[in-house]
Write a protein that binds this DNA or RNA. Structure first.
Length: 357
DNA sequence: AACGCGTGGTG
DNA sequence: TCACCAAGCGT
């Protein structure tokens, strides 16, 4: 058996990273104790959830999913709606749709076992170059180095890569691979990720605590924080719209969004288009026709929300509908008391909370 | 090859 | 405050 100490005796940055990792590795819900084999299902589930999402946000979702669906086969037997309900609030909902599709594929086409090669994993829905390499290395010990945002940052600093992202990606991938030791590929990758998350942070990196600071070109230059080089990104224009909350006794009127695109497949209250140049009258004119509902009342204030590519402000209207009022075509009544379990994105939770306030 | 795609934390 | 960003992927 090769241990970190053995690697350390041979010297080099890969070994130094593993020595550091064995002492400082984070304890995470999806990470087994040191030396214990990882469960491919747990690795895959966590990697999908962690895409562009913080460890803190993922924690409770990972625990919920593992408790309800302990295996990929169990998850593959769940309905997409149930998966979306459990995913609600975590964002990037195409991940949930692909997660379900992937579980079905693994259960039905691979006998409930994940492919153990990078290429095999890469073919699964929602599994791209990073995730395929991460699962291959962490769950199956394959000699490959996944490159995520953390590792991009660590490597771009270590070598002071001047090229701007994403042009620098191939070079960084190449350099990252040199940090793989002769064994423990998964730990090598996780060491770099932990280093990026705790020491080599985007702002104010703690270089004094870094196990490889002597090797770091950016550290020597004193401008580690300026890596990786990136072009400034443009912020989207504010969009405006209206949301309509119809109350019938202890229920509220809901509908489902189309399966693809923004908040695809998720549940919402009826609402208008969201346009950058739309006045209140135009938005209000898109209220649903609910037979028997009394007049709309505009709630004071607005609900503000920020998506990746644009900020949004919604005006909220409420109306009361008499008992027995029929839901318009494609809509349904749901009890307010059980909304917590619905596939409502946080934007819609804000809207409903504002309406009931 | 850019762009669309959520949400919450941070300096 | 607000721009940035977090274990990216699909198109």
């Amino acid at each position: 058996m090769i241990t970190a100490d053995d690697d350390g005796a041979s010297g080099g940055r890969p070994a130094a990273l593993l020595v550091w990792y064995d002492r400082h590795r984070r304890v995470l819900p999806w990470r087994p104790p040191a030396g214990v084999a990882a469960d491919p299902y747990a690795v895959w589930l966590s990697e999908i959830m962690l895409q562009q999402t913080t460890v803190r946000a993922v924690g409770p979702y990972f625990e919920k999913f593992m408790a309800r669906w302990p295996s990929v086969t169990a998850l593959g037997q769940a309905s997409l709606d149930d998966v979306l309900r459990m995913w609600a609030g975590l964002g990037y909902y195409s991940r949930a749709r692909n997660l379900h599709a992937c579980a079905v594929a693994v259960a039905t086409q691979h006998g409930g076992r994940f492919p153990d090669t990078e290429d095999g994993l890469r073919a699964l829905p929602g599994v791209g170059p990073y995730t395929a390499a991460a699962i291959a290395a962490i769950a199956f010990g394959r000699q490959t180095m996944p490159v995520d945002g953390n590792i991009e940052r660590v490597v771009s600093r270590l070598y002071a890569v001047e090229d701007e992202m994403p042009k620098a990606k191939p070079r960084i991938q190449e350099l990252a691979r040199t940090l793989l030791g002769p064994s423990r590929a998964g730990d090598s990758a996780q060491a770099l990720m932990d280093l990026g998350a705790t020491i080599c942070t985007p702002k104010k990196p703690a270089c004094a605590l870094c196990p490889i600071d002597d090797d770091c070109a950016a550290r020597r230059r004193g401008d580690a924080e300026t890596f990786p080089r990136k072009a400034p990104k443009k912020t989207g224009a504010l969009r405006r719209g209206a949301a309509f909350v119809v109350i019938r006794g202890d229920q509220v009127l809901l509908r489902s969004r189309v399966a693809k695109g923004l908040l695809g497949g998720m549940t919402e209250v009826p609402n208008s288009d969201w346009l950058s140049d739309q006045d209140d009258a135009a938005a209000r004119a898109q209220a649903p026709a609910v037979t028997g509902a009394t007049r709309w009342h505009r709630k004071a204030g607005v609900v503000s929300h920020v998506f990746t590519h644009f900020p949004l402000e919604l005006v909220v209207y409420t109306a009361q509908a008499p008992a027995g009022t029929h839901a318009p075509k494609g809509m349904r009544w749901e009890k307010i008391a059980t909304l917590a379990g619905e596939a409502l994105p946080n934007l819609m939770r804000k809207v409903i909370a504002h309406a009931l306030d």
